[in-house]
């Protein structure tokens, strides 16, 4: 029973720290790192919930597996949008007439 409590608590602390990072940091990459840290906190809570003394619940494991892949896809899309928006801003700055 003990490891569940330790990792559930640690997951919640990591989640809260990531939430602060999303709000307080300015740089887009820092925000994305903070969102991914929040994700790790949530995954930690789910995996700790799945850990029972005698048997291991596979359903939260499958959810976390799905979550990891969706998180990397979302991160990649955000990064791509950031790169494209920065390129557009640069174009607008270098050609103000358009």
């Amino acid at each position: 029973m003990t490891p569940d409590i330790i990792y559930s608590g640690a997951g919640m602390v990591v989640f809260a720290m990531g939430l602060y990072g999303v709000i307080a940091s300015a740089h887009i990459l820092r925000k994305l790192v903070a969102i991914n840290i929040m994700g790790i906190g949530v995954f930690m809570l789910l995996i700790a919930t799945a850990h029972h003394d005698t048997l291991i619940d596979p359903v939260p494991h499958a959810m976390v597996l799905t979550g990891i892949v969706v998180a990397v896809a979302g991160t990649a899309l955000c990064l791509w949008l950031a790169v494209v928006i920065r390129g557009l801003e640069h174009d607008a700055a270098s050609h103000p007439s358009q």
């Binding site: 608590g9 919640m12 602390v13 809260a16």
Partner: peptide, 26 residues
Amino acid sequence: ITAGGAALLLATLRTDKAPPELAVLV
């Protein structure tokens, strides 16, 4: 966020664990 996180932490630590119904089903 500290207040909310502390509330989440307390809620997590004080909630009794659900019996593994899904694991038995699987």
